[in-house]
Amino acid sequence: MNCILEAQDLCIHYNKTPILWDVSFKVPKHHMTAIVGPNGAGKSTLLKASLQIIKPFSGSISFGRCNSDNHIAYVPQKESIDWDFPVSALDVVLMGRYGRLKYFQRVKAADKEAAMQALQQVGMASYSSRQINQLSGGQQQRLFIARALVQKPDVLLLDEPFSGIDMATEKLLIELFIKLKNEGKSIFIVHHDLTTLDQYFDWVILINTRLIGCGPVKEVMTQENIQKAYGNNLSLFEEAHHLSKKQAEGYIS
């Protein structure tokens, strides 16, 4: 069983409008996989569905044997966080350990030690007591990766980790990810920059509501496939499903 992530006829609806439709693929272990597609293609949705945060309308997607959350770590998009919240960097990384703690358990010294180690891995050990609103964009991103690392995951899922970061931090992060991949982890990244695909990744899932391709980067990212994903032949589809959505809410009969 060499595959880490498998989807079968996955359909995800939002208000009767399909966001992901009939998606099936298999991704092997120990790869750095990019999830690419135009805006609104369902990339974040795919990620959230694989984490069981969103329930599919039909079909399935799962992480095979590593289905217990302790082995899968998730780094969400930066925008969904309130950066004014009164917590320090260490507090945020400690949150990654909450999954191991039962309802009334407190945080122990071992947890703090693990958190400091994770901060060390991303090069932020000296910032442990800083307030999160005093961190730069790149530091905030590294902090959330540390929170994922403290869960000692086998699989790492990141939603647009490179958006709004300077080049230097991006290089730093990519080196960290490659190191993790070489240590045997599987990494999935929702990515928006097609130019860096073959540099950073060795596997890609190309989607635009439907699966266009899943496989090694060079095989999937052909001219034809890119045209299918980013081209305009879905406009009638979108129009029809817009009508369907309006009908489902009762605005047309």
Binding site: W21, K228, F237, A240
Partner: peptide, 29 residues
């Protein structure tokens, strides 16, 4: 033809959409 859906899968979605497609959309199709 345009979305590469397998032939065995097109029927189900078409069952739903046949009630929704307007005359304008039909012309475009």
């Amino acid at each position: 033809e345009h979305l590469d859906v397998g032939v065995e899968k097109v029927h189900k979605n078409a069952e739903e959409m046949e009630h929704i497609i307007t005359p304008e959309l039909e012309k475009k199709l």
